[in-house]
Design a protein around this nucleic acid. Structure first.
Lengths: 237, 237
DNA sequence: CGCTATGTTGATCCATATCAATAAGTGTGG
DNA sequence: CCACACTTATTGATATGGATCAACATAGCG
């Protein structure tokens, strides 16, 4: 968990994020100079819900699980892949985190002091615009997630999840699950046991699974069952 | 459904919204001149999910139900009370609405062309800052709603809803439900039948209901069951 | 006053959670 | 490199939260 200043080598990848791509050079440098990079082993809790938001986090490599707890229960809310930021809203509002975060694997995380972000936001119109765009995007993502939860059964959620993953893969018919089933179950709002059975229940629609390798023999058949909807499933819209 | 230009009499109430309070005078006047006000009867569908976002909506009086549908099912996502805006994220991103909206009662709605909002956003830093704050707030609200859905049973959601409502009322022990049970059920993610039974199930914790009038005899007892959490239930945090 | 939508209650069904046992990985230290 | 421990995945049995269906009561409204 070595703590380093921000090496210049990571500037370009951060610069490529929509959030920073249009920021004025001097603002960007100021932000980067105040920031630093840390390497974390797997399963390290980076932040805890309720804590005050001291840093905007940027995942440079690895992956991060955002989760929440209540009354002894826990649920996965989202997964953050490189290169993207998380807990922007808390940073902006200077409010406590609503979610906890832990590394899923060995990960490199950039930490930008929240105060610097708020200062840059006031100073740079382009940055402000980028933040608005990012927040609006995030908001819409959560609304879609909520529609998914309230309007669909767990089997329907799984079917649509598989269709969505398939879209991102090169191959039309097969791909690998991006994370362990235990977490997938939590993300989809079900128990691991129920997920296991849900995979079997999708067999009549041409879904077969072995380990974390998925094969979809008849995409149209699965679609007829899943009824994917861009207003729930498409990340872009 | 009379269609009028924006009467100057409503400027002050709109001006008081966080979203507009800091906007420069000339920007504000430009926004208002392009806007207009409509009076709607109850149960009129104002916007439909999937449509393009031509106007930012502001509820001046009455109330509006935001809901979504999929595969013949429908669910209430949120309720908008005066004076506040809705579908800001779609307006900003110039993306299709993710939710539909209908009036619950006779309502006055101000409509500000989305393009004007986007122009004002670019021209006025204060407005941009206000939009960011509003979006961050909205984002956090939906995250809380999602935690509520994924971490709690329907009975627990109802109990916490009642505690939240009680906070807003003057009286410690009794208050009226703010909308019909049918919708409350949908908001809480359950059926009307289940809600009916849930109210009864809360009787052992001192909750009694008659019509839409609620009495809570022992707040502490109910709290012990509901386990309210500021990171789920408080609108402010 | 009667119509229509809402709310309640009961009976039943279904989806999903829980509990338990086993199997299969996965990583660790000897 | 293997044995052990520990976590994850699967499967079966069962329990339960919540939905559905149906009947009836009730309340608002034209």
């Amino acid at each position: 968990m070595a703590r380093l200043g921000m090496p210049e080598s990571v500037y370009p990848e951060i610069r490529e994020l929509h959030l920073f791509s249009e920021v004025a050079d001097d603002q960007f440098m100021t932000l980067m100079r105040g920031a630093y990079v840390q390497n974390f082993p797997p399963r390290i809790e980076l932040i805890t819900e309720g804590d005050s938001s001291d840093f905007l986090h940027i995942v440079l490599s690895g992956s991060v699980d955002l989760f929440s707890t209540w009354n002894g229960r826990e649920t996965s809310m989202a997964t953050v892949w490189p290169v993207s930021t998380f807990i922007l809203a808390a940073t902006i509002k200077d409010a406590p985190y609503l979610m906890s975060a832990r590394t899923l694997e060995k990960s490199r995380i950039a930490l930008v002091p929240s105060q610097d972000v708020r200062i840059a936001f006031d100073a740079d119109q382009c940055f402000a615009r980028a933040i608005v765009s990012e927040l609006a995007q995030s908001y819409r993502s959560v609304i879609k997630a909520q529609k998914n939860l309230k309007l669909r059964s767990s089997l329907e959620r799984l079917a649509n999840y598989l269709l969505q993953q398939q879209k991102h893969s090169d191959d039309v018919t097969e791909f690998d699950l991006r994370f362990e089933k235990r977490r997938l179950a939590s993300v989809l709002g079900m128990t691991p046991e129920n997920l296991s059975r849900a995979f079997k229940a999708l067999r009549p629609y041409g879904v077969s699974i072995e380990g974390n390798h998925i094969e979809i023999s008849d995409l149209e058949d699965l679609k007829r069952f899943a009824k994917p909807d861009p207003l729930i499933d498409d990340p872009e819209t």
